Amino acid sequence: MAVIKNQKTGMWEVRTYYKDWTGTRRQKTKRGFAKKSETQEWERAFKLKDEMNINMKSKISRNCAFRIFSQELSTTRF
């Protein structure tokens, strides 16, 4: 979220937030970029990776829920 130039070193850094697997909000800081554009590119890639992880988790949980439901349905007698 924040791309900042460190005044002491002259290097760029990025601070961004994400939610881990427990739903806790975490901060990620990456330092040492020579160019602002490199910093922004890293941030975009990190956000994209985080978004893909969230999509996979929801897909996996839906598949697990369907599997449990279908097992219960197959053992139930009408």
Rank of each mutant, 00 (worst) to 15 (best):
I60N: 14
E51P: 00
R25V: 05
T29A: 07
T9E: 06
N63E: 02
N63G: 01
T24N: 08
K5I: 11
Y18W: 12
S58I: 09
K5Q: 15
V14T: 04
S74F: 03
I68W: 03
T16E: 10
K57Q: 12
E43L: 09
M56Y: 02
W42Q: 07
T29H: 02
K8G: 05
K30W: 06
K35A: 15
K47G: 00
D20F: 00
W21R: 12
N63D: 00
M56G: 00
Q40M: 14
A65R: 10
T24S: 10
W12F: 09
G32H: 11
Y17H: 09
T9Y: 08
K57Y: 12
R67P: 00
N6Y: 11
G23L: 00
A65T: 02
T29M: 08
M11G: 02
R26P: 01
L73V: 02
A34P: 13
C64W: 04
G32Q: 14
M56A: 06
E43Q: 07
D20K: 00
K19H: 06
E72P: 01
R25G: 00
N6S: 09
R44E: 11
T16F: 08
F66I: 09
Q27V: 08
Q40L: 13
K36V: 10
K28G: 01
I68V: 12
R44G: 08
G32F: 11
E72D: 05
T24L: 09
Q7K: 13
K49E: 14
K30M: 14
M52T: 12
F69L: 08
K47W: 01
K5S: 07
T9Q: 07
S70W: 05
R44Q: 13
E41H: 14
F69C: 02
R15S: 11
K28H: 07
E43I: 01
Q7H: 06
W12M: 04
R25I: 03
K35D: 15
I68N: 08
E41G: 11
N53V: 03
K28Y: 03
A45F: 03
Y18K: 05
Y18M: 05
A65D: 08
Y18C: 03
S74D: 07
S37E: 14
T29I: 14
S61W: 06
G32I: 12
Y17S: 10
D50N: 05
R15Q: 13
K5R: 15
K59F: 05
F66K: 13
N55P: 00
V14S: 04
R44A: 14
N63Q: 03
G10T: 10
Q27C: 14
R67S: 10
Q40S: 12
A65F: 04
S61H: 06
G32W: 09
R25C: 02
K8T: 10
R26K: 15
G23A: 02
K36N: 14
A65N: 11
F33A: 15
L73P: 00
Q71S: 08
R44D: 13
